[in-house]
């Protein structure tokens, strides 16, 4: 894998073939960006960097939006051919977000893949957003959570698939990661990587 970090901090994955999933995610994040900040977390981060698996949902956090802004965002989203799986009532969708629940966005006529979107709510989410890495390939640009947080987070979730994602990211980035940061998140989430060869 050739990954180039530009002086402005953007990570370029030159030559990466754009998948239909990338296009779907980009078409939604482009709309989100008109209204607020977002950060992609969890499985799709590993997939972006080459993990050979599909996914039915893409997790992302957004900054808080007031009700009027969210209504404009939703209108834009619906005009572009997307919908909320949870309800057709946008007021209800907004209430779910305010109750710290996730809402799901899919393309018209589809159930999967979908984007699972939440307001950011804790220190981990705030860190992921404030230190988000900007990834660029072809004409696509995404903001993704730092890998030093994603590996402990995946170990914390703990399913076979999550642990495989953590091991994959570790194998790919182990020489370039900030060991102190990785250790700090592992301690805070009370997870251990040694059983899986993740030794920091």
């Amino acid at each position: 894998m050739r990954i180039a970090s530009a002086p402005d901090g953007i990570i370029h994955i030159d030559g990466k073939v754009v998948t239909a999933l990338d296009r779907f995610v980009a078409s939604v994040t482009e709309i989100i960006e008109r209204y607020t900040r977002y950060v992609i977390v969890s499985g799709y981060v590993a997939i972006l960097f080459g993990r050979a698996r599909g996914t039915e949902d893409i997790d992302l956090y957004i900054d808080y939006m007031d009700r009027d802004t969210f209504m404009s965002f939703s209108e834009d989203l619906l005009e572009q051919g997307f919908y909320f799986l949870n309800s057709d009532d946008i007021g209800e969708i907004y209430s779910m977000l305010c109750d710290r629940l996730a809402v799901r966005i899919a393309g018209a006529g589809r159930i999967i893949p979908n984007i699972e979107m939440k307001f950011k709510k804790d220190d981990f989410d705030r860190y992921a957003m404030s230190r988000a890495k900007r990834i660029q390939f072809d004409d696509i640009r995404f903001f993704v959570s730092p890998i030093e947080l994603q590996i402990p987070y995946k170990l914390y979730l703990g399913s076979d698939k999550d642990i495989e994602d953590a091991v994959y990211l570790w194998m790919l980035f182990r020489e370039t990661l900030d060991g102190d940061l990785l250790r700090m998140f592992m301690e805070r989430l009370q997870v251990r990587g040694e059983p899986y060869g993740i030794e920091v």
Partner: peptide, 10 residues
């Protein structure tokens, strides 16, 4: 190269 793994993944 990125073109190789990403083609297979795509």
């Amino acid at each position: 190269p990125n073109e190789v793994w990403s083609r297979e993944q795509a």
